[in-house]
Design a protein around this nucleic acid. Structure first.
Length: 414
RNA sequence: GGGGAGGUUCCCGAGUGGUCAAAGGGGGCAGACUGUAAAUCUGUUGCUUCGGCUUCGAAGGUUCAAAUCCUUCUCUCCCCA
């Protein structure tokens, strides 16, 4: 088997392929141009978008040529695959700014130096399409009967599917055709929810150009506890540090279920597969080391080594009692001495930190014995925090709040 | 275009003119147990200056009193054309 394909399989990136033998052959013959699409429908990628990009990274390492398509055109429509509701329409400006952010994030996975990879935007060819021409040239190759049998559309038929969304598949197929014509791109990869769209693209290429194209999909990543990948109560885990703090990003991975560690190491880090397996096989307390490696490695890929170190140190400082570790990675804010001299109510302090969303929330936390300051429990709702709460460590004056067992916040007193 | 059903707190989903801040479940949060795990058990889950205040698609109205009745609007789903 081709080495690149073997790597993908070994690491869990293989779900279905339209023609595995052909793919094997093509990958062996030399560099293949490979298309993966991302739609700029949100201000940032989130954790769920990463799998195809990691796969692309491995393929690039094996010498193949990624073409990353940012769907500036298709984002105007919205892909119904896997969705139960129609997406909100985005303005052109939103899409543009989303696309810019996306491009930066993609560069974490794929090298764009020189000719190693290409970034394209399908708005370049979709925006000015002529409707009549499109219908006549492309639309005639699609059978509505056939499309309705796809799971993606079936589901939506129960709920309601607008005509605009129904066209998504044609546009994505047309993208593949364009890339085949322009770049000689013969392989499209994506999540398994893209299977229908990818196959449709292949068929279009065969019908219009007589060309042989291949599709490859990855399993949709699930968590062993059944929760949605990359989602927390507060929302998705984003790659943009403005939307998900680096500390929270790190903690998300640090807290994955035992059963998921190995799978995630293989999918979401660049560590050798053997190493991922070794770490994933650790048991009991030892597996925490593997979780830390996962969190560290992935944070490093997305946010850089310096930030990853900060986040790891911050987490260690928070969870290991005492110690003089570096807490700079912990979420924090400034506070003046005079504020403390006046005295602040515990509940107000927790609200101010953002650890509690309202005073009622803070009251609950305190009365349920979940609030502590500098490691000391506070269960009196009326407690007033003053200057005596300032903790001096390593030359910095601070007050460290803790809500429950895992949420920390640090006030730096000036 | 005609007819029907419906929009309830994060989600699903009960709901009687007053005893509803609104059953139940899910999810969340907190506590116990732990390994920053899972499972389990317990408590809690609109806001508050703790007097109250603002919620049941939107706006009006009836009433001492409305999520519950009336009017208009709006959105969703279903059937017919």
């Amino acid at each position: 088997m081709n080495a690149a394909l073997a790597t993908l399989k070994e690491r869990g990136f293989f779900k279905q392929c339209t023609d595995e033998d052909l793919l094997n052959k093509k990958l062996d013959e030399g560099p293949v141009r490979i298309y993966v699409g991302v739609d700029p429908t949100g201000p940032s990628m989130h954790v769920g978008h990463m799998v195809p990009l990691f796969a692309m990274h491995h393929l690039q390492q094996a010498g193949h040529l990624p073409i990353v398509l940012v769907g500036g055109g298709t984002a105007r429509i919205g892909d119904p695959s896997g969705k139960t509701d129609m997406r909100k329409m985005l303005t052109i400006d939103q899409i543009k700014s989303n696309a810019e952010n996306l491009k930066k994030q993609i560069a974490n996975f794929i090298e764009f130096d020189g000719d190693k990879a290409k970034l394209v935007d399908n708005a370049d060819w979709l925006a000015d399409l002529n409707y009549i021409d499109f219908l006549r040239d492309i639309g005639r190759h699609f059978s509505v009967n056939r499309m309705l049998t796809f799971e993606a559309y079936k589901k939506r038929l129960e709920k309601g599917l607008s005509f605009i969304e129904f066209n998504y598949q044609l546009l994505q197929s047309y993208d593949f055709l364009e890339l085949y014509r322009r770049e000689n791109c013969i392989l499209q990869i994506g999540g398994d929810d893209q299977w229908g769209n990818i196959v449709a693209g292949m068929e279009l290429i065969r019908r219009m150009e007589g060309g042989e194209a291949i599709g490859l999909t990855f399993p949709l990543v699930t968590r062993s506890d059944g929760k949605k990948m990359g989602k927390t109560e507060k929302g998705a885990i984003f790659l943009d540090p403005e939307l998900t703090s680096i500390y929270d990003f790190f903690q998300y991975w640090r807290n994955v279920a035992d059963a998921d560690v190995e799978k995630f190491l293989l999918l979401y880090t660049f560590l050798p597969a053997d190493e991922c397996r070794r770490l994933g096989a650790l048991k009991d307390q030892e597996i925490n080391k593997a979780k830390e490696v996962l969190a560290y490695e992935l944070t490093k890929i997305i946010h850089g080594e310096a930030e990853a170190n900060k986040a790891m140190e911050g987490a260690r400082a928070a969870f290991k009692a005492g110690g003089t570790q570096d807490k700079s990675g912990m979420p924090s804010a400034g506070m003046t001495v005079s504020e403390l001299e006046a005295g602040i109510n515990v509940m107000d302090l927790f609200v101010q930190s953002g650890l509690c969303s309202s005073k009622s929330d803070a009251r609950r936390l305190v009365s349920q014995n979940g609030a502590s300051i500098n490691g000391e429990k506070y269960s009196d709702v009326d407690a007033i925090i003053g200057v005596e709460a300032i903790n001096e460590e390593g030359g910095e004056k601070e007050i460290v709040l803790k809500a429950g067992k895992k949420r920390f916040f640090r006030f730096i007193v000036k």
